[in-house]
């Protein structure tokens, strides 16, 4: 019984610390998505490829709302696709924040 309780307590602790870690930074899965999947057009270092440079200096003219909208709805008549079918509005916002502030690692 004690063992079960301890296991539950440990799990709760693990979940809480995971949630805290995610609140402080961009979730690892989203960073991976930006680097790998946005990266297939914008380059893994985001300096541009077939798509333009999306590092903070290049995105300076965007505010967070506009950038989130671009992520969600894409840019018509260009290769930038709408990510709304895959991403929630909250995730798009986190991605926009991440792009505007740059990678702090």
């Amino acid at each position: 019984m004690l063992k079960t309780l301890l296991t539950i307590a440990f799990c709760l602790l693990a979940i809480t610390s995971l949630a805290l870690a995610e609140e402080q930074g961009t979730p690892a899965a989203l960073v991976n998505l930006v680097r790998q999947d946005c990266g297939s057009c914008h380059g893994m270092t985001l300096k541009g490829g077939l798509g333009p440079d999306i590092r903070p200096d290049a995105l300076g003219h965007y505010d967070i709302d506009t950038l989130s909208t671009v992520v969600l709805d894409g840019i018509p008549k260009t290769a930038m696709p709408p990510w709304r079918p895959i991403l929630s509005e909250a995730d798009a916002r986190k991605i926009a924040e991440y792009l505007l502030k740059g990678d702090t690692k």
């Binding site: 999947d37 297939s40 077939l50 894409g74 290769a79 696709p81 709408p82 079918p85 895959i86």
Partner: peptide
Amino acid sequence: YGRGKAELPVYKM
């Protein structure tokens, strides 16, 4: 070739 069908978003060329 895609005439008449809705185009899906392209997430990778």
